[in-house]
């Protein structure tokens, strides 16, 4: 059974006023336990609205969201419970830090869940470990940290709730390449050690290409495509017509194919491209 599933999910903002706007329409989505899923789409395609339904922050105008086969809006109490099982990390989460110390801030979520004092400490340290914050940080004020460290502290605040599904909205936006790599690595760590489902919303195609199992493509409130990275990135032209850019490796592969080089389909990471080109080179050398 999929751990999270939506059926014909539709959401309309400011319904019944002149400012009415449909943000998402009839979205059927499914994620299995332990899957790594990427959601891509241009700005305003409905990504952020969609993920806020998965932990019950927004109520669908029509359609349903199921967690482990149960409708998450079945009861108010259930919806609240879902919020801890489906962890949502918003865009720029560092702006939500508010406690006096990093420890207290990471502990906010688990405390709300009613975790006992002894377990709390363990959870906080473990969560901090996942994002690579050492114990020296724990007693610091979150406002003393650097941008990347703040972001990681905020992500730890969600991880400390031990969510079975972790959703991240543009977790690497505005960070330098090293900060980006660290965060992607942290997420992978959490996924592997807990067999958690990860849902990553991003504009960064390279990031998605390297990690995810499945991609969902949103455009103008519709879910227009889903598939493996190889399937989605095979059509670089289609992606660019939608204001998105395929990973550089996929674009190069497509161009080389157009130039008549026998590059095979379904290449979208640097490593794949390097191997393929090496293979062609040795083959070519043998032929000559």
């Amino acid at each position: 059974m999929p751990i999270i599933k939506t059926e014909k999910l539709t959401h309309t903002y400011s319904s019944g006023t002149p400012f009415e706007r449909v943000a998402i329409r009839d979205i059927d989505f499914e994620a299995e336990r332990g899957e790594y899923i990427g959601i891509i789409g241009a700005t305003g395609s409905g990504k952020s609205t969609f993920i806020q339904h998965l932990n019950g922050l927004l109520k669908p105008t029509s359609g349903n969201v199921y967690f482990d086969g149960v409708d998450i809006h079945e009861s108010k109490h259930h919806t609240k419970e879902i919020r801890t099982k489906v962890g949502l990390v918003f865009q720029y989460p560092e702006y939500q830090l508010f406690e006096a110390t990093v420890f207290e801030d990471i502990a906010f979520g688990p405390k709300n869940m009613g975790i006992s004092e002894t377990d709390l400490k363990e959870r906080v340290y473990e969560a901090a470990g996942f994002v690579g914050l050492s114990e020296d940080f724990m007693e610091k004020s979150p406002f003393e940290l650097s941008g990347g460290e703040k972001r990681r502290a905020a992500i730890a605040g969600v991880i400390a709730m031990h969510p079975e599904v972790l959703i991240l909205d543009e977790p690497t936006a505005g960070l330098d390449p090293r900060g980006q790599a660290e965060i992607i690595h942290n997420i992978m760590n959490y996924k592997n050690s807990r067999d958690a489902t990860i849902i990553l919303v991003t504009h960064n195609m390279e990031e998605i290409a390297r990690n995810v199992d499945k991609i969902f493509l949103l455009r103008n409130s519709y879910l227009i495509d889903k598939g493996t990275p190889a399937e989605i990135f095979s059509d670089a032209e289609k992606l660019s017509s939608m204001g998105l850019k395929a990973p550089t490796a996929a674009i190069i592969a497509t161009r080389l194919r157009a130039l008549g080089l026998p590059v095979k389909e379904g290449i979208y990471t640097q490593n794949q491209l390097r191997e393929e080109l090496n293979a062609i080179k040795t083959k070519g050398g043998a032929n000559a």
Partner: peptide
């Protein structure tokens, strides 16, 4: 919304 996601009531 963000604090609600962290279980704030």
């Amino acid at each position: 919304s963000a604090q609600k996601s962290r279980g704030a009531d």
